[in-house]
Design a binder for these strands. Structure first.
Lengths: 191, 191
DNA sequence: ATGTTAATGTGTCAAATGACACAGATTTTT
DNA sequence: AAAAATCTGTGTCATTTGACACATTAACAT
């Protein structure tokens, strides 16, 4: 759980006791390749922190095409927040692309942490604020970049993801077809 | 400020005293058409709640094209969170598309509210969580919809915005050129 | 190991899109 | 009221993209 502790430390100061309390509610879990961690109609009642492997988070659009919403990578905290917070069933999928090791924080644990004491409550608030800010930045970035730029960005900031995740999933993630991504790669290789 | 009170009520129960405390930190402000509420290099130190008019939030991409990141509409709470939370200068613009009336909450007010008492602190945490959830849903929705679907969605859920905001801005908002948006409108009109 | 399924590379072609160009309408400024 | 600037509608054309088809390779299951 060292990775998780470091992740938390990135959000600010916190006492050793509170850090221990935080981590004590998280449980390591292994997810074999191909397993559906989440599927439609399910009520998501955990937050996940990835330590190893990649998760494919996707849905189907009105045309029946599979759309990748996110590829979750190590050192990233993720859940289907709408389902988690509002107790509603999800309509999306999350599948392990390879053997995954993650830390799971159940809703009860999350609520316990929030109400344990002031420092922890503030800490959680701080994390939520930072995640919101990061999400907005990510969305804005996506809006203002071309497909090719998004690919170069992935290549630069998430090289391991580009290596290990199937091309079609990367293509969908950046908003194009696998053929177009292939043309981009061919062009870049030529240069 | 009735509109703001109702907006807050949508996020859950809160005592009348705390509601008054919340609202007491917000100040009505008028922004004339064309005025830059925010420009690059500025440190954003307020959260805005729109009561009337539309704000154009945009940036320029690497190709020098103006990209609309959001059109802020009445009954919506907005700021450049990264700048607000992390005290960093922004590189984006926000301009009033017509005469705007908004409520402004300064950073000091926001911090005072968060630390005033437990109910208010929880209330703010709740709002942040909901906004994060909504932002993720919005981004996912955008990912899985075609340009035409995004336009129909705007037309259905924000008809006033489509009427009052220049076509080129709407086009940029849904991720296309004004010509393509025009083709879509022509096609829809024919049907 | 071997058949089966899934993923990838690549070509062709039709459709969609963006880049320009320009006229008419609307809004703003002087 | 006139002039200037901005926005809108529309056509042409080159480019990009997606849809399809199919051969090749890799991964998986029996």
């Amino acid at each position: 759980m060292e990775m998780l502790r470091n992740y938390f430390k990135g959000f600010g100061e916190i006492s050793p006791e509170n850090m221990d309390y935080l981590v004590s509610h998280c449980k390591i879990r292994e997810v074999p390749k191909g397993m559906e961690l989440i599927k439609p109609k399910q009520d998501v009642d955990s937050i996940y922190f990835l330590e190893e492997g990649f998760l494919h988070y996707y849905t189907y659009n009105d045309f029946g095409e599979r759309v990748t919403l996110k590829v979750v990578e190590p050192n990233y905290c993720w859940t289907i927040l709408d389902s988690f917070v509002n107790h509603v069933p999800t309509r999306e999928y999350c599948v392990a692309l390879n053997p995954v090791r993650l830390c799971e924080l159940k809703r009860e644990g999350y609520l316990a942490i929030k109400s344990e004491n002031q420092e922890l409550s503030n800490f959680i608030q701080n994390i939520t604020e930072q995640l919101l800010s990061a999400k907005v930045i990510e969305a804005n970035k996506k809006s203002s970049m071309s497909i090719e730029q998004r690919y170069l960005d992935l290549l630069h900031n998430h090289p391991k993801m580009v290596q290990e995740v199937p091309v079609q999933i990367i293509a969908s993630l950046i908003g194009t077809s696998r053929e177009t991504l292939h043309r981009i790669r061919r062009k870049l290789a030529a240069a």
